Each structure stands twice: as structure tokens, then as C-alpha cells.
Amino acid sequence: MQPLDASFLDRQGGAVVLIVDDVPDNLAVLHDALDESGYTVLVATGGEAALARAAQALPDIVLLDAMMPGMDGFEVARRLKAGAATAHIPIIFMTGLTETEHLVAALEAGGVDYVTKPIKPKEVLARMGVHLGGARRARETAQHAGQARNALDAFGYASITVRVADGRLLWQTPLARELLARYCGPGWHQQVPPDVAEWLRRVHGIAHTLHEPPRFALEQGARRLAFHLHQQTGDGAEGDGEWLVVMREESDVAAIEAMSLSFKLTAREAEVLYWVAKGKINRDIGDILGASPATVKKHLERVYAKLGVETRTAAAGMALGRLRQLQPGFLA
């Protein structure tokens, strides 16, 4: 089946409605009534088909039969509400069950309303009208947010939305998925790695008190994947929030080359200055570069002369300023 283009469906008239029912007669009655009222109508006769159709078309509202063979309507609703792309879609249950516990179960599964069988099309239309205005606004908000986040990819800034309590990935752009797989392995498509989750839990409660919350990086040779908090998107309660986190891949090699050009340094002088900006002492820099501390000191003296400074602190300050221009959010 070819994926449905939700934007194409929207242009065909009124709201897009997905009807899910395993009884053909019920589908026919509702389809005709809704079609005559100007809605674009999609149908599914089972749970799996409903989930696939909802993911493809992103309907404005779902009319969902509670009792179906195989996957019942309650499970379909739970899965729709668990998906980032479909969580905002209102669900109206259609049920012949009138006991309180069944109606409560429908609402707990994610339904916003219910109608009882036998179905009365006028009642269904009235209930739909109550929920569609808010649903359309929620959908547009979700689409705009998705477009904005995906736009970050074009500039090398991948973004994810993470739930603080359990590290669950609620949203990720294509570049984010690629970077997480490269640095963490292919299994991290639903959860962030434990060390990233721990960093997020640690800074979540204090982020609002800090001008620049602590950042985090995953190292991979001369490259690193840097994470920083961008915007809180969920509940602000301790441990229960959601954050939009921006990631960017950074490279020692690229930064060193850029500093060499910026300050007219040799490759080795640029390396020494780079590691000074990272807070390394001469002995550590020597270990990294395979040179003695005395050699590092000589290179550093030439760096001072070219930068027109006299102290390690001044040289590091100039280097940090340039690195933060080259790599916003540079982690010293």
C-alpha cells in the first residue's frame, strides 16, 4: 500500500476521519453519513490496519470500535496515544458495552468520548464537532514543531525530545537517529543511552536556575557528540518533565585546522593551543601529542608571540572565544 499524504487529504474538503470497525454494515452507515457531511473518510476493519492507516494519514479524529477480534479497540487506542505522531488525535469509542467499568476503560485507554451502539450518525456528528476544533489546532502545532525541528538538521543540529523520568525518546529528527546509532549503536531508537539519561535527570531540576546548564558529550576518537538542553516541553515537575535536547557533532581535527588558519599557527602549535583551551597541562598535552613537556612549552611560547599575549590564561581565552564561534556550545 502506498503511504497516504495527509496534506493531500486535508485539501479535499473537511476533516479527515478514520473509522475502525470489523462490521461492514457499521462502516457503510457511518461512511455514507460522514461523506455526505463533507468529511474525508478512511476505514479500517482491524487493529493492525487501523494503526497503519493512522500513521500514514494522520486523521483529525478516530471513531474506534471497542470490541474487535484480535487487537481490540482499547489496545489500538493505547498504541495511538503512545506514538509521538498520533498522540494528539482524539479518539471517540463506539461500544455496545454500557457498564461503567468498560466506559472507564475506554477513557483510560485514551478516548475523549464514546457513543453507544446501535450507532446514530447524527449523534456521532455532534460528538465529533465538539472535539475537532481542538484536534485541528493540536495537529497544526505538532506539524509546525516537527518542521522546525527537522529544519535544525540542515544546519547540523540534530534534535530529540526526551522524557526525564525514564529517558524515553518521544521525538527524534533523522539526523538525530543517525548520530545516536553512530555513537551508541543501532539499538537506541526508543530510549537514550543510560549516561545521557542520567545527565538529563541531573540537570533537569536545576536548569531553570542556570544561565547555561551543564552540557554532555559522548566521545568517539577525535570526534564527540555534544548534547545541550534547548527547551522544556513537558511538565516541569521534578523527574516528570520533557526536554527538547539539541545534539551537534564536533571534531578536534576540524577545530584545530580552523584555529591554525585563524591565528596563523603551525599544525602543532594549533594542537597545543587547542588542548590548552581544553584545560590540559603541558604534561597531558605531551602525552596526547607524543612529545615532551619541554617541547610543548616551546610551542606554547611561539603561540604567545603570534597571539600577542603573555600568559596561558590569555591564550586560552582567545582560543575559547574562537572555538565557540566555530562550534557553538563548545565544551571546554
Rank of each mutant, 00 (worst) to 15 (best):
His189Phe: 11
His211Ser: 13
Val276Pro: 03
Ala151Arg: 11
Ala291Leu: 13
Ala85His: 07
Phe155Ser: 13
Leu4Val: 13
Leu175Ser: 05
Val76Ala: 01
Thr173Leu: 03
Pro213Thr: 06
Lys122Met: 06
Glu101Gln: 14
Val41Met: 05
Val20Ala: 08
Ala87Ser: 11
Tyr157Gly: 08
Leu97Asp: 00
Gly46Ile: 01
Val76Phe: 04
Arg312Trp: 02
Pro121Asn: 07
Ile288Met: 11
His204Tyr: 05
Gly73His: 04
Tyr114Phe: 15
Ala138Tyr: 01
Thr40His: 08
Ala145Cys: 09
Glu36Cys: 01
Val124Glu: 05
His230Gly: 06
Arg163Asn: 14
Glu123Trp: 01
Arg322His: 07
Gly156His: 06
Ile285Lys: 03
Leu218Gly: 06
Gln2Glu: 08
Gly187Gln: 14
Leu64Glu: 09
Lys264Asn: 03
Gly111Ile: 03
Leu307Ala: 12
Leu34Lys: 05
Arg202Lys: 09
Asn150Val: 11
Met68Arg: 12
Gly38Ile: 10
Glu238Asn: 07
Ala148Ser: 13
Arg248Pro: 01
Asp10His: 12
Gln143Trp: 06
Leu265Cys: 07
His228Cys: 09
Ala217Asp: 10
Gln191Thr: 11
Lys306Ser: 14
Arg302Val: 00
Arg78Pro: 03
Gly111Pro: 05
Glu301Val: 08
Gln325Tyr: 01
Ala258Cys: 10
Phe263Thr: 02
Arg223His: 12
Leu261Ala: 15
Pro328Lys: 04
Pro59Gln: 00
Gln56Trp: 05
Lys306Ala: 09
Val17Pro: 00
Thr141Val: 09
Val246Arg: 13
Glu36Arg: 15
Gln325Glu: 12
Val192Asn: 05
Gly221Arg: 10
Asp35Ala: 10
Ala165Asp: 10
Val309Gln: 02
Leu4Thr: 08
Leu30Glu: 14
Phe155Leu: 14
Leu210Cys: 03
Met94Thr: 11
Gln2Ser: 12
Ala151Phe: 13
Trp199Cys: 05
Gly308Ile: 12
Thr173Tyr: 03
Lys264Met: 02
Leu30Ser: 04
Phe330Ile: 00
Ile288Arg: 13
Gln190Leu: 08
Ala84Val: 06
Val29Ala: 06
Asp65Gly: 08
Glu242Lys: 09
Pro90Ala: 09
Tyr157Leu: 13
Thr116Trp: 05
Lys298Phe: 02
Gln220His: 10
Met68Tyr: 05
Thr173Val: 10
Ala226Ile: 10
Leu63Thr: 13
Val196Ser: 02
Pro24Asp: 02
Arg53Gln: 14
Val17Leu: 02
Glu269Gly: 09
Ala6Trp: 01
Asp35Met: 02
Gly133Arg: 15
Arg79Phe: 02
Asn282His: 10
Gly308Glu: 04
Tyr114Ala: 11
Ile119Asn: 11
Glu269Ala: 08
Trp199Glu: 05
Arg283Gln: 12
Leu169Val: 15
Val76Gly: 07
Leu132Val: 14
Leu200Arg: 10
Gln190Cys: 03
Ala66Lys: 11
Leu218Ala: 06
Leu132His: 00
Leu9Phe: 11
Pro328Asp: 00
Glu301Gly: 12
Leu152Gln: 10
Arg322Ala: 13
Gly286Cys: 06
Ala294Phe: 07
Gln12Phe: 01
Thr98Glu: 11
Ile160Gly: 07
Ala294Tyr: 06
Met68Ser: 13
Glu242Thr: 15
Glu238Cys: 10
His211Thr: 13
Phe263Ala: 07
Gly73Glu: 02
Lys122Asp: 13
Pro121Thr: 05
Leu169Asn: 09
Ala57Phe: 03
Leu58His: 14
Glu75Ile: 09
Lys278Trp: 00
